[in-house]
Design a protein around this nucleic acid. Structure first.
Lengths: 128, 128
DNA sequence: GTATCACCTGGAGTTAACTCAAAGTCAAGG
DNA sequence: CCTTGACTTTGAGTTAACTCCAGGTGATAC
């Protein structure tokens, strides 16, 4: 699959896909004879994984390390799991923090709601 | 309260606090006669609010707009609520996305777990 | 066959959000 | 009195993660 189609399918720009490759996040994208990128099924799975992880805010640096470990084969399984465990914990606390902010937002919205209703009543009263 | 104490209490650097003021996010910090910042109770509440919103990823630009509306008084209540509603919805979907990533991470960790256990068994077997 | 278009590379530019540095002021301690 | 240390301002530097650009190549449509 060529870069434009991958870009379309995953919502990442071609520039971003090339950038990911440049920095070692997607090191193994296959090419046609004339040098055009031709993403394999495995490449696509990796794009999907990276997209998912990035959307949750995992730093690129961490993902590069993870991908390098994958390249090194089975002996790195524990190290890879360790990375995922760390990132899982970080993500868990980020979600908790965001949930707290969400609660505060909802609380404030409610207060504004009452405030606005109060104002309307007041205006209706004035018009009587 | 002086800047160093505010910095300490909220875990934001003095540079960051001054930066927030510079860009209009904390426009009303009171000063002593000699020009030293002396954060009022209201200032502290705002720092706390901003810190909370920033930690959830709300863009500074949005928070500046919100603060400007506050400065403009009661006539902007609807507009302020509108901003909070939008950000609430954005935050809700970001949390949902992160939750999906968290699920995937947990799934992968589990697979690694099985894999590692399998390897250990294999090794134990080899040693028999 | 030539024009167009997607692709390529290397390098530079952008954006958000800080973060640091230089040069100066002021209050308190010795 | 003078040094120290926290404060001030303005402006520049940094980091992460893209994003864009110029100049070039190769395949396809007319």
């Amino acid at each position: 699959m060529k870069i434009a189609e991958v870009s379309e399918r995953y919502g990442l720009s071609s520039d971003t896909l090339r950038y990911y490759e440049r920095i070692g996040l997607l090191p193994t994208v296959t090419r046609t004879e004339s040098g055009i990128r031709d993403y394999s099924e495995l490449d696509l799975q990796r794009v999907d994984f990276i997209k998912c992880m990035r959307s949750a805010g995992l730093p690129i640096e961490v993902l590069i390390d993870y991908m390098e470990l994958i390249e090194q084969g089975d002996s790195t399984i524990e190290a890879r799991q360790q990375i995922l465990l760390e990132q899982r914990d970080l993500l868990t606390s980020r979600i908790a923090e965001m949930q707290k902010t969400l609660d505060l937002l909802n609380h404030k919205i409610e207060i504004y709601e009452k405030n606005i209703l109060g104002k309307e009543k007041e205006m209706a009263h004035e018009q009587e």
